[in-house]
Amino acid sequence: MALTKLDQMYRAVILDEAQHPRHHGVLADFDHEITVRNPSCGDVLHLQISEKDGRVNDVAFSGNGCTISQASASLMTDQILDKTPAEIEQMVETFSDLIIKGDVPDADRLGDAAVLKGVHQFPARIKCATLAWKAAAQVLTEKGKTDD
């Protein structure tokens, strides 16, 4: 079976990340909150972010989705810690490019999250990967406005 393409997307680290997500749950105190959906597939993601001195100092997500969306949310929440909203906005742009193109020069700023680049070979799954990132950018720029 030719599963190389699959293996590139479902790296062991991604399967593990989805099964044991970091920052999964809810925060008692937070400054930003958003619920986003992928209406074509029913994925729901609830994201809370707490800020201190202009940087993200805590974050949590909950909801449900596929391996890609859960792993991506877990990696995203880990990578945005200690970052400013402006930095996060840039990261989200870079991540989006990476997932669509498969390679970008500034992938380094994404840290471990760059492991998701294999998704670019599966156009139908791009939205799964970008859901959490777009939620972060949206909530940090729109100050807690939700789509509910």
Binding site: L3, C41, C66
Partner: peptide, 21 residues
């Protein structure tokens, strides 16, 4: 295992099914 992951796996084996709500 999320249905979308199953669908992608099956698609790679040239099986077209539907996954979603």
């Amino acid at each position: 295992i999320h249905p979308h992951d199953v669908a992608t796996f099956l698609d790679e084996q040239q099986i077209a099914i539907r996954a979603g709500h």
